Simulated scan of single mutants.
Amino acid sequence: MNQSEAIINAISQQARTELRPLADAIDREGFYPETYLRELGKLGGFAAAIPEEYDGLGLDLSTQIDITTSISRECGSTGFMVWCQSTCAWYLLHSPNQEVRERYLKDVARARILAGTGMSNTVKHLAGIEKINLRAVRTDNGYQVSGSLPWVSNISADHLALVAAYVQDEGYIMFAVRCDTPGVSLRPCLEFSGMEGTQTLCLRFDKVALNQTDIIAHPEQFGDYIKRIKPGFVLGQTGMGLGIIEASVETIEDTNATHAHVNVFLDDQADDLSAELQSLKSRIKELAQATKNGNPEVLDVLKARLATSELCLRATHSAVLHTGAKGYLMNHPAQRRQREAVFVAIVTPALKHLRKEIHAIEHPDEQAQAA
């Protein structure tokens, strides 16, 4: 057994014994599993793609995706928070500014500091979908930021938020800020239909002062930096969907032990879903491994993420139909996974966002005419 297999086995065992019993409370009661997340950090659950010099495991993104997959089998909400935390470590690792990397990366990689990525608004803005919400101005010591982000997950007063802002006439900055910094405030969101235990809050900035050790990327660095981190950002999310698909296939197989004679008339049987899943996992693994020495083709990355959303929706839909009335009960995981699958399809980049970006790449002439 190699190091990657050993860590995945250890984390899978931890998820079965410690996370599975919490899944309903996380989903329905808004329980935030902070203790579990911190213990996961000690095992290296967020640090697979981080070099050993920063307290990482020295492996790669494909192993991190496998870790997220194993956790998402038990709880999609927690799988999402694993993506949040590990992606914040990914941001810091690739920052061109050593000061912010040295200040935070080790603690984020091992969950001594918990962190949320608030880049949804920026990613949608860069895709031409919405306006950017945060604005920054230059100061003698750095920048001053104001504005609000409606949904940032895995944050609390003592957590770190990694977000971006627009600097007039210069471009964009990305930065890390403690949520108890003067001028930063947190507000509750409206109740969601799922994912309530993800500690998702509205994050507001009122003339928040940033210094050089807070800055992940300055305006002159931002363009190249975003290109570097985006494939990992997008591919990392596939672990959420893959784990939910795996669990849904298992539910279908379990149900067919007694009801195969009638379930055979449903679409998306377990064998078909499993075959598609294995093909998708192989494709994602190749793309994830390619990020270690540069970047894979962004079109391939977007298509893999899109395929994950689409298969996740189909698999969870099929699992509910296979279980019948039992799957419609609130205490059955099939209905929870169906709501988790919808989240996989709407979290940035959402299914429609992915299709928009894919269309833009595949039809550059249309984009030129629109400009």
Rank of each mutant, 00 (worst) to 15 (best):
R314H: 09
M119E: 04
H332W: 01
N9E: 14
A345W: 00
D158M: 02
L149P: 03
N154V: 12
Q212P: 01
M330K: 13
E29N: 15
I65C: 01
G56F: 00
V184A: 08
F80Q: 03
T139I: 08
A111I: 02
A247R: 07
H261L: 15
T87P: 00
I346S: 11
F233I: 06
Q269C: 05
A360T: 15
P296R: 11
S274T: 14
I173H: 06
I71F: 11
E220M: 06
E362L: 09
V137K: 15
M119Y: 05
G327C: 02
Q85S: 01
L114R: 00
N154P: 05
R38L: 03
D254Q: 06
P231G: 05
R38G: 00
H218D: 13
A370R: 15
L61N: 06
E357Q: 15
Q221I: 01
E34R: 15
T68V: 13
A217Y: 05
L162G: 04
L19S: 07
R38W: 07
Q335G: 03
V184S: 05
A275K: 11
I132G: 11
C75E: 07
L329A: 11
E253V: 10
Y225E: 05
V123T: 07
E340M: 07
E29V: 08
E99P: 10
R28Y: 14
T117H: 11
K292N: 11
M81I: 04
L321N: 09
Q98K: 14
R110C: 03
T122W: 13
P231E: 02
G79N: 04
E74M: 15
A319M: 03
P296M: 11
I26S: 04
E39F: 07
A161W: 05
E34I: 12
R339W: 09
A25Q: 13
L351H: 11
N154C: 14
A275V: 10
I113A: 01
Q64M: 13
H259L: 08
P182V: 09
N263W: 05
L114S: 02
A23F: 01
F265P: 05
K227S: 11
G223T: 14
R112A: 08
L299S: 11
G142D: 05
A247D: 02
T255K: 01
T348R: 06
L160W: 00
C312S: 06
A217G: 01
P21I: 09
R187M: 10
V234Y: 04
P150V: 03
D169A: 14
K303A: 06
A270K: 00
L351E: 12
E34M: 10
Q289A: 11
H159D: 09
Q367A: 13
D268R: 02
G183D: 02
Q369R: 15
A48Y: 00
G30V: 04
V145K: 00
P333V: 08
A304M: 09
S86E: 04
A49P: 00
L210V: 03
H322K: 07
K292H: 12
L302W: 03
